[in-house]
Each structure stands twice: as structure tokens, then as C-alpha cells.
């Protein structure tokens, strides 16, 4: 993903629950206490671009600790925050994926599901999670390709929204796709449509 990629920016702005490992002065506004320090162990949601850095930095990084009393170093040698399990990777969601991911409403769970997993897995290497999601994408991909190639959908995309059953049904399906899957669906459908046009308009 490039610097100017809107999806990338929106992905990084997704909020992750975090826990502060030390109390930090002046950050109370984050939990609605302006002017007060943020307490140790308080849980707040921070956007991924911020929490990613805070979870990898410690209070003593880049500071010459000689001459500072040991007990005050102790407090800061931990990482600033600890990332907690985000709601979209909770066992409830993972079990739903295992049970039948094809019909899952991914967009409601998280609109940037695959992108966020990609970023998450750079921090926490989790083969099991990645394998599960690749299998999910594989299964959903077949369904996306099927929907994209069905002729009623090809016609529907040319016409004004109509009230017929198939069209409504397909609209519902599109609403369950996450942003990456939507793009995949659009490019796939365009390709099938061009092919159909070429085959029949000769």
C-alpha cells in the first residue's frame, strides 16, 4: 500500500483497545479528564497508527538512564501501552468464521478486515489466525466470483435499481463484503462484463 492510499489511511485509523502500563502526566484528556494524568492500567481505544508505535516503545528508549534512581526507571522500562485483543479478532468472531465464513457480515464487524489483519500480523506473528483468514478469503472469493459472473447481476449493474428479488438479494450480499472484497468484486465483475460484451456484440 502506498502513502496516499485512502484505504491504508482509513485502516490505520481503526481504534484498538489498549491498556496503559504506566501513568503518564497530562494525557488525561484521552479518557475525558483534561489536565489530569492518565492512570496506570486504564483502558482506552487508540487509533492503530498511534497504538502501534506506543506498543513498541518503552519509556526508557533513547534516554541515558545513568544517574536516574532505579525505582523510577522500573516504572518506565515497560512498553507504554499493551495492545488488547480487538473486538474483531475475538473468539466469538473467529468461531463464526470457522462455522461458516461465507455468509458472515464482515463489513459490520470491520470494514477493513484483511488490511487490519495484515498490519496486526506484522506485530503479532499468528500463523493460525492468518491461515484461518486466508481460508475465509478463499471461500468468500469463490462466492464473490460467482456473484460477479452471474448474468442477472451483470444486467442489474447496467440498469437502474429495480425491485426484483435477485437484485435485492445481491445488494444484500454486497453489503456484507469488506472494502477489499468490494474492490475485488468490482474488478471481477467488470472483467466478466467486458468478456460478455465482446462475446455477444459481434
Amino acid at each position: 500500500m502506498s502513502y496516499y492510499d485512502l484505504d491504508d489511511i482509513l485502516t490505520e485509523s481503526i481504534k484498538f483497545p489498549c491498556k496503559f502500563n504506566s501513568s503518564i502526566a497530562g494525557l488525561g484528556f484521552l479518557e475525558g479528564n483534561p489536565g489530569k494524568p492518565i492512570a496506570k492500567n486504564s483502558k482506552i481505544e487508540l487509533p492503530f497508527w498511534l497504538s502501534k508505535i506506543l506498543a513498541e516503545e518503552t519509556g526508557t528508549d533513547g534516554i541515558d538512564t545513568t544517574g536516574i534512581p532505579q525505582n523510577s526507571i522500573e516504572e518506565f522500562k515497560d512498553f507504554y501501552i499493551e495492545l488488547l485483543q480487538p473486538p474483531f479478532f475475538q473468539p466469538r468472531v473467529l468461531n463464526a468464521i470457522k462455522a461458516g465464513g461465507e455468509t458472515l457480515d464482515l463489513h459490520t464487524i470491520c470494514p477493513y478486515f484483511y488490511f487490519i489483519l495484515e498490519k496486526w500480523s506484522t506485530i503479532y506473528n499468528s500463523d493460525e489466525l492468518v491461515d484461518l483468514f486466508m481460508e475465509l478469503l478463499r471461500k468468500r472469493g469463490v462466492k464473490i466470483s460467482n456473484y460477479a459472473s452471474s448474468t442477472s447481476m451483470l444486467q442489474a449493474s447496467d440498469q437502474q435499481p429495480s425491485k426484483n428479488y435477485i437484485h435485492n438479494n445481491s445488494q444484500e450480499f454486497l453489503l456484507t463484503l469488506d472494502e477489499f472484497e468490494k474492490k475485488l468484486y468490482k474488478t471481477t465483475q467488470l472483467s466478466y462484463k467486458n468478456m460478455n460484451k465482446w462475446l455477444h456484440n459481434r
Binding site: 484483511y114 492468518v130 491461515d131 475485488l184 467488470l190
Partner: peptide, 21 residues
């Protein structure tokens, strides 16, 4: 005909896969 689909989805697989062991 299948190129847009295959390349797009393989790219995503590759991105997801590169962080596994």
C-alpha cells in the same frame, strides 16, 4: 478473463502470508 480476480486475491494472500512463519 480471470486475471483481475486472480491477481488481486493472490496479492492479498501474499500480503497476509508474508508475516507467517
Amino acid at each position: 478473463e480471470i486475471r483481475p480476480y486472480a491477481t488481486k486475491i493472490s496479492d492479498m494472500f501474499k500480503n497476509l502470508h508474508k508475516n507467517t512463519a
